[in-house]
Amino acid sequence: MKGNLGEKLQSLPKPILYLILILATSIPLFFPTEVPNEPVESTKDFYATLMALPEGSKVLLMSDWTGSTRGESKGAFRSIFKILIRRKAKVAIYSAADPQAPRVAQDAINELNMERKRKNLPTFDRWNDWVNIGYFPNAEAAINGIANDLKGAFGGRKDFPPNSPPRDVFQSPVLQGVTKVEDFPLMLVITASKTSNFAVERVSGRTPLAFAVTGVMVPETQVFYQSKQIVGYCGGLKGVYDLEQLMESGVNFPDKATAKIKSDKLGTIEGFPDPDNKGQGTRYYPTLHYALALMIIMIILGNVGMFLAKRGDKS
């Protein structure tokens, strides 16, 4: 590296940069800590919406994430299911963004069930508690079809009852009595793509919508949240961590004075303390601090280098 200090500060070699990033995102993982955090309003509303579901409610879930965003989406998916299982909800899952998505969702639920089995907890059973309706290509048309004629859109799709060949999904307890999208008291979208926009376009105003989106989608999702087209959302890793903390502490719970998480807008919302609440959010969020701090430091370093180089040129 030649030149003055300013130029040197601006020209760290790429391999060094990459190595620093690997270290910043690896070392903290070996030292799990719990960082203080104040959940954002949108996640509080998201949690409040899930917890307000009457027991046994039927929920429509559009699961549009795959391995590409598992760092964020899988954590959100697992936390949401932990809450839905607690609410004894019945979940109809379909996908519209990626042919891999239905299998990814199915594998994630199976993984959750295996963990529950190991802990001697009741499992969340396919057919009786959830059905996988499958993949619908052309997301825009698919959501339009579901919004306008749910019975027709899902008609002919099959899933697996216990000890029986696949049967029409409308025979499952999950979709019993469901004929239109309004029959679901909530539609959830866990997505890493534009399908959340399509849900707003077609379903908002028909039934409440709540999203779990990736970090990059937070700013555009905030727009829908601000205009009340969605009731709440969980955005990125921060959202997942917020959700895990909300599961643990609730809101204004047990009372507003002693609550860990407070809200003027919301009433008392129960939490359910359980070590199992701590998932991907708790594991990754402290490490994110180091990575973001590195980003801030590198940007500052580059700019300081630029100013020093300019001053050097002038002198």
Partner: peptide
């Protein structure tokens, strides 16, 4: 800012997969 959070989270997930 949001994009950075997302990309770093995906990297953290990979690092967790490899190291942990």
């Amino acid at each position: 800012g949001s994009t950075v959070m997302m990309r770093f989270t995906l990297l953290i997930d990979r690092m967790h997969f490899i190291w942990i």
